[in-house]
Amino acid sequence: MTSTPVTPPAAPAASAPSAVAGWVGNPWARFLLRRAGRLLASLAVLVTLAFLMIHLIPGDPVRAALGVTAPPDLVEARREALGLNDPLAVQFVDYLRALFSGDLGVSMTSGVSVSETIGQRLPATAGLAVVAFVVVMLAAIPLGLAMAVLTRGGRRRGVELGFTSTSAVVAAIPEFLLAVGLVFVFGVTLGWFPVAGREGAASYVLPVLALALGPALLMARIVRVEALAVMDEDFVRTARAKRLPPLRVYLRHVFPNALTSTLTIGGLLLSGMIVGTVLVENVFAWPGMGMTIVSSILAKDYPVVQGIVLVYGAAVLLVNLVVDVLLAIADPRSTIREG
């Protein structure tokens, strides 16, 4: 092995130019740097927009929050407390400073700190999204692969048609309508699973199902199409020429090469599912951020809305970053060199 070490010199004593050259020369470092830069820019825009949200609201947000009957001096005091009377630039700097110290402001209605509220609500939402995503991956990949194998080379047209049309229809039904259907079937009619709240594993079943069903079918379709395309590739013929057992051909040679698009779609689905929790939580009275943001929007409790929008947005950006890095690992040629 004669390849040069890829890690930069760890010792600070190493001369700076060579360390820099080492970093610049390494495509991975360049890729990560570029990608981190994009993440920072996106985060900056997200934070700015979240800040501006309050100021873009027509009229006086405090007046709107407290209602038309609130005495003017109370409104004025609240404006002062929120810093809304300062110049915009000063407010922005204050906002950023507070943000960096983890302070997202205080709820206008309850007076509870926003970060505390989020801290309480985030685990329920994250748990729901993560479990649903795992379910999607565990169900969709084998299903998609199995469908590809069954319908390869134009076989079993009936199965193909059944699968593509069912999955198209079900995937087109939004999660909250599926949720209502599931509540009716499994909650009301059969009484198998709880339909509200978050207590115990059983309470996860219906929300996770509602959230995961559509994305799983969508993903299975993508996996199937990709796997079918890969099966036509020359190297799969090579694998068959080696007389490998079919399962090995599919798992070692077909699937890894269908991974790129699976990952891309998986990332999109995950960020969609993170936000999809908002609706599902409201169907199942799930005590997460989705319930909170809706009630806060209705109550015009803007600091809370601001904070939660930030969390959702940051989560989505983070998912995108992870997907990009995974894609780079899965297919180093394309992602790193181009970008």
């Binding site: 996106s42 709107a64 969609g272 609706l279 209705l298 929008v309």
Partner: peptide, 17 residues
Amino acid sequence: AFPALLLALFFAVIFGV
């Protein structure tokens, strides 16, 4: 990069319920 629903919530705050 942001799901449409998140954008919709954002705008719903601005344009009011």
